[in-house]
Design a protein around this nucleic acid. Sequence first.
DNA 1: TTAAGCATGTAAGCTGTTACATGATTGG
DNA 2: CCAATCATGTAACAGCTTACATGCTTAA
Lengths: 226, 226
Amino acid sequence: MRAHTPADTARVRTGRRTGNGSRMSTSTLGFALLTLLARAPATGYELGQRLDRPVGYFWTAQHSQIHAELHRLSEAGLAGWEAAPGPGPREKKIYSITEAGRDALSDWVGQPPGAQPVRNEMLLKAYTMWAAEPDAARRLFAGRRETHLRRLADYQEIWDRITRAHEGGVPPRTHPDFGSYVTLRLGIDQERESATWCTWVLDLIGTGDDAGAPSDGEPETGPRAT
Amino acid sequence: MRAHTPADTARVRTGRRTGNGSRMSTSTLGFALLTLLARAPATGYELGQRLDRPVGYFWTAQHSQIHAELHRLSEAGLAGWEAAPGPGPREKKIYSITEAGRDALSDWVGQPPGAQPVRNEMLLKAYTMWAAEPDAARRLFAGRRETHLRRLADYQEIWDRITRAHEGGVPPRTHPDFGSYVTLRLGIDQERESATWCTWVLDLIGTGDDAGAPSDGEPETGPRAT
DNA sequence: TTAAGCATGTAAGCTGTTACATGATTGG
DNA sequence: CCAATCATGTAACAGCTTACATGCTTAA
């Protein structure tokens, strides 16, 4: 982490603004990157990794898109960068959020998200289940349950790490961990719920032989009382 | 609903196949349309409405995209259409699924969905909450809770209608309603869970004055026991 | 008369994915 | 020696949104 030494390899472009006083905005991906930069400066490569885990469970992007967006962010004055010698043919750029970036980010959080296009392939398949072989459906839901349980374990691990860091309590409201804490809470509950749902569906389909009768229990009332 | 009268306004293109025996496939949107057509023939316009509610909660598309995709589906032999006099300058087309379409659809359901790009703006905002004004966050989550509760009521209504149609029990496994039933179950549970989560977060933020202490209860343990 | 609903389509543009390209360092 | 990791970028393409275009029928 080289400091602000005015070496000739280091160029800094921070806080640049457009002439007019209009509120500068960016795409949602831009805010996703800004929220990461607000926690710590990083290269585009590092941001890509953080967009894999843990953030990747609610926002993803490819590295090609990240580099392009970072470029736009620094053009808009929401992020700045500092060059450092890189491993490859190009120098690497350590990006950080600017004051204007912090303002834009804080502003954006308060704005209620507009109706977003939803695309959930698993639910689409569940909806079409009646038209498929019971055996294929069984495999589909069994595999899906595993995915949810793996994710659940992953979340739980991060959750434990965070709560331990704050003596088992809630992180302070202005601490970045507060955001992780709140987000993880929903993630954990939803993964658990989804896994339970898979079990419930498997029960509904029955164990095999195409008998039509669910194995046991009272699966027709749902995973929880309705 | 004009029957198969060989009137000169009616052209039928069903079951067309490409020469080779290769398995024909389409985009996920294509399967979304096929699953609707498997339930009942429809015009592109009608499919657009059905993609709004109830299917819109897990798959959406604009009409321009729908018409283009239907064209591709009929080119691929997965759907066929029959022309009928339309209200506008063009005749309307009533699409239906072909045998090849049913096969492709049934096949597709069994294939586990690959890792899909997730983009949840609300969770991104929750993750960034620590950097925002408590008041803005409060408004955000209060509004969000309303959205979830509205959706919950909507789901519940459809759920009640479906279970009533099957004497309060589970629809038969090969009935389209079985797909709706299973899908709604997860939808209802997740909307309820999300609403509870919003309440929990609001409790964590506190009722006002920036005091930092949650209102009452023991919100730090989460909406359910962990 | 005017707006909303029915009904289909084209075109421009933005977003995002996949593939291509380069090259140093470190670990097996 | 080979593969993986670090690190940034370009180009082609697919998917999706928004806007434009047309015109009938029915209800307010």
